[in-house]
């Protein structure tokens, strides 16, 4: 069992026992070796279910938005104690954006920040294990070995190693913010931020011609089945009623899942994520149709940084990028 896991459990236990938090959101063992899943616990007795492993990929911030949307029953005093939550560096930036946008007051959340060098892609783990002749549930005790730059697990009492570079999630390879900035408590040592190309995923597209890009996206947008998983797992998509689902006073986007309407949906979502997307990569991970959504949102992030020197989730005091302007902003409109 890793040290970080112990500490998470200890903190959660203390917080719950003292009644300092309403409940605690963390990760638990998932349906197979390579998937962790979110868990919400109220009882300090349950803290042993909490884990910390390279499979903790979910962004739990989405549950904070749920919490803020809850309406107390009539006549009931609302419980405004904070919610405890385990966050990786990217998830913590998401919470900063929620603070910035006045969706989540700081006193309503207790953030455990964990410096993170990246999490493992469950599919890559599975492939890697299969090569070693190990099935989806053969491995247990997955752990992160920081100093050796690898993930480890055990199968039938034997240690199994996964080289980090081979199984890392794509978004983690491009991450330059390994340390959470806003937190109530931090577990683990600070990690030196790497110098990598954070926009690597869109370079290839940027080099294409207009026609090539149009062709690239055409097939992809056609494939979308509009299951809405991308927006439901996104902590930034917190609208009570999404503009693409709204039918009153007019329907902006038809329910018809054709290329035109799918593209409308994805581009509107991309516009709504400018300067807000913290690149947790959840949308792309959950998409059943393998739509490379990060290639849209990363482009938006790049433009926001290039034009307005703005990066999402770094400074809670700053105004959101579209909620402000500078008189001498770049003007290409004449």
């Amino acid at each position: 069992m890793s040290k970080i896991e112990d500490e998470i459990r200890g903190i959660a236990k203390k917080l719950l026992e003292e009644g300092k938090v309403k409940y605690f959101t963390g990760y638990a063992k998932g349906p197979d070796s390579f998937r962790a899943r979110p868990i919400i616990i109220d009882d300090p007795k349950d803290v042993d279910k909490l884990i910390w492993s390279p499979c903790c990929v979910n962004n739990l911030g989405v549950y904070l938005v749920d919490e803020m949307k809850k309406k107390p029953k009539r006549g009931e005093e609302p419980d405004t104690r904070p919610v405890g939550i385990v966050t990786k560096a990217c998830d913590a930036r998401g919470i900063t954006v929620l603070h910035q946008e006045n969706i989540l007051p700081k006193e309503r959340v207790y953030v455990i920040g964990i410096p993170c060098r990246g999490m493992a892609d469950p599919e890559k783990l599975e492939k890697h294990a299969r090569k070693k002749g190990l099935g989806h549930d053969a491995i247990y005790n997955m752990d992160i070995k920081e100093e050796k730059m690898m993930f480890t697990g055990e199968a039938e009492g034997v240690k199994v190693a996964f080289p980090r570079e081979e199984v890392l999630l794509d978004k983690c390879k491009e991450c330059v913010h390994h340390n959470p900035r806003e937190y109530d408590i931090v577990i683990g040592k600070r990690i030196e931020n790497p110098h990598v190309d954070k926009y690597a995923t869109i370079r290839e597209l940027e080099d294409m011609s207009l026609e090539e890009r149009e062709k690239f996206w055409e097939m992809i947008f056609e494939r979308c089945i509009r299951c809405n998983a991308c927006k439901e797992v996104c902590p930034m998509c917190y609208c009570e009623e999404c503009t693409v689902e709204k039918a009153k006073p007019m329907r902006w986007c038809s329910k018809s899942a054709d290329k035109s309407n799918n593209e409308f949906f994805h581009l509107i979502r991309a516009m709504h994520l400018v300067g807000r997307c913290i690149d947790c990569g959840e949308c792309e991970r959950v998409c059943p149709m393998a739509i490379p959504l990060r290639k849209l949102y990363r482009k938006m992030a790049k433009e926001a940084e290039k034009l307005y020197s703005y990066e999402a989730g770094l400074n809670p005091e700053e105004d959101p990028v579209f909620a402000t302007f500078r008189v001498d902003d770049d003007d290409e409109f004449e």
């Binding site: 989405v62 509009r226 299951c227 809405n228 439901e232 959950v286 059943p288």
Partner: peptide, 9 residues
Amino acid sequence: SRTCVGCGI
């Protein structure tokens, strides 16, 4: 349902 995100997958 506590951890369900309510998508349609």
